[in-house]
């Protein structure tokens, strides 16, 4: 059974993420109010298969057009309010990703994009990958998807900016309610495979 919760326990398989200053949450809420109608996004590619980059690109094209919400993709972390991390952090890309994090002015919102960004996706336990953005930087919003559709990207930005509230909630199923029903009970026996 593949039920191993944490894969390899030894410390050397983990990286230690950047630690947040204490009052940063208060600063972030203040920031959110300011950038509600004009958010500058900077894309940090930590070694994904670049399907996520193309979908972010597609989100800015005429059909989905993020600029109508004031969301603009800028070309330097200096101007950025939101850092958009894609890709499961590969070893070679860890140093540049941390440099980008320090270059952006505080307070900043960090969004982790795509299955690789959220939790390492299909490469989560590989030798050359640290697996997920939250291994190196504190993340505020997760946008799952492989790759997330441009509509999901826009929804993610809306949740990040606090325009929409998130729909997905963690769920605890109660399976003991009743027995599992058999399927196709009314089919006569001999033709049922």
């Amino acid at each position: 059974m593949k039920g191993i919760k944490q894969l390899v326990g030894t410390a050397h398989t983990q990286t230690v993420p950047v630690v947040l200053p204490p009052n940063s949450q208060k600063l972030k809420d203040a920031l959110l109010k300011e950038i509600r109608r004009s958010a500058y996004v900077y894309r940090v590619d930590c070694g994904g298969c670049n399907a996520c980059e193309i979908e972010i690109f597609a989100a800015t094209t005429p059909i989905f057009d993020t600029e109508r919400f004031g969301i603009k993709i800028v070309a330097s972390p200096r101007h950025a309010d939101i850092l958009l991390y894609t890709g499961s952090v590969t070893r070679a890309m860890r140093a540049p990703a941390l440099r980008a994090y320090e270059a952006a002015p505080d307070p900043k919102i960090v969004i982790s994009y795509g299955a690789c960004g959220c939790d390492g996706g299909i490469f989560h336990d590989l030798y050359c990958v640290w697996g997920g953005t939250d291994k190196i930087v504190p993340v505020d919003v997760y946008i799952p998807g492989c790759p997330p559709t441009p509509a999901a990207t826009i929804y993610g930005f809306a949740v990040a900016l606090g325009l929409l509230d998130q729909k997905l909630k963690s769920k605890q199923h109660q399976p003991e309610a009743q027995k599992a029903q058999l399927k196709h009970t009314n089919i006569p026996l001999d033709i049922k495979v």
């Binding site: 070694g47 298969c49 670049n50 590969t90 890309m93 996706g121 299909i122 990958v129």
Partner: peptide, 25 residues
């Protein structure tokens, strides 16, 4: 810079059908 080591993954954790999903990525 984006080397993730997929070839090792295909030999160890994944069965034949899962590698078909891996190669999609």
């Amino acid at each position: 810079y984006v080397h993730r080591g997929m070839e090792k993954l295909a030999e160890t954790r994944m069965g034949y059908h899962e590698v078909a999903q891996l190669t999609d990525r």
